[in-house]
Simulated scan of single mutants.
Amino acid sequence: MHLQPAGFVTLCAFIEGYESALMDHGTHDHHDTLFLMHFSDFVRTVTGHEDDRVSLTTPEGILDIGQLHWQAAITRTEQDDGKAMALFFDLLDRFKASHGLR
């Protein structure tokens, strides 16, 4: 895979596009969707953001959207783009190892 420009933001955009395509077109076994959901849970826990919530301010008040996505948990942990990219791949390797995946 070639990302241009190389960086965490571009990687996230690629993965977000993949997630969006999965939701739009669906899969028969939902394996990839479940993988990304469990990975997000893992990242929130490992980075210490398991209780953090995402909120949106609206004219009616503050709307609680839900738990942080893996991307938000990583960027809250590491703001530097290069270090965030390294953290992503470290967490991905650790997640795969903890679930017996290659």
Rank of each mutant, 00 (worst) to 15 (best):
G48S: 12
R94N: 11
A6Y: 12
H25K: 10
L56K: 14
L87M: 15
F88Y: 13
A6I: 08
Q4R: 12
H31P: 00
Q71N: 10
R102L: 13
S40H: 10
L91C: 12
D29C: 15
E19G: 06
H28K: 12
D24G: 12
D64Y: 09
L92V: 06
A73V: 07
L11T: 01
I65A: 12
C12K: 07
K96S: 06
S20F: 06
Q71W: 02
K96F: 00
G17K: 07
I62G: 00
S20C: 14
T45Y: 13
D41I: 09
S55N: 11
Q67V: 00
H99R: 15
G7N: 01
C12Q: 06
G48I: 13
D90H: 13
A73Q: 04
E78M: 12
T45M: 09
F14R: 04
K83P: 04
T75P: 02
I65T: 12
F35A: 01
F88Q: 03
P5N: 03
P5C: 03
D24W: 08
E50Y: 08
G100I: 09
F42M: 10
L87N: 04
G66L: 06
D80T: 07
R94M: 13
G82S: 12
T75K: 10
I62L: 11
H2M: 08
H28V: 11
T77D: 08
D29M: 09
Q4L: 11
L92H: 08
T47N: 07
W70I: 01
D41N: 14
D29V: 10
M85G: 00
H99D: 01
I74K: 01
G26V: 02
K83C: 07
T75I: 14
Y18W: 11
R94G: 08
H31M: 09
F39S: 03
L36P: 06
V9M: 04
G82P: 04
L3P: 03
G82N: 14
G7T: 00
T33S: 11
G66A: 07
Q71L: 04
G61C: 10
L3A: 08
I62D: 08
Y18F: 14
M85V: 04
S55E: 15
T58E: 13
H28L: 10
F8R: 04
H25V: 05
L68C: 12
V43R: 02
E78L: 04
W70T: 03
H25P: 00
S55D: 10
H99T: 08
A97N: 01
F88R: 02
A73D: 07
G7R: 03
A72H: 00
S40V: 03
T27P: 07
M1S: 10
G48T: 11
D24Q: 15
F8A: 01
R44G: 06
K96A: 13
F89H: 15
K83N: 14
T47G: 00
F95I: 05
F35H: 05
M37L: 14
H2E: 14
L36I: 13
H69E: 02
I15M: 03
L22F: 11
S55V: 15
R44D: 11
F14Q: 05
L11G: 02
A84E: 02
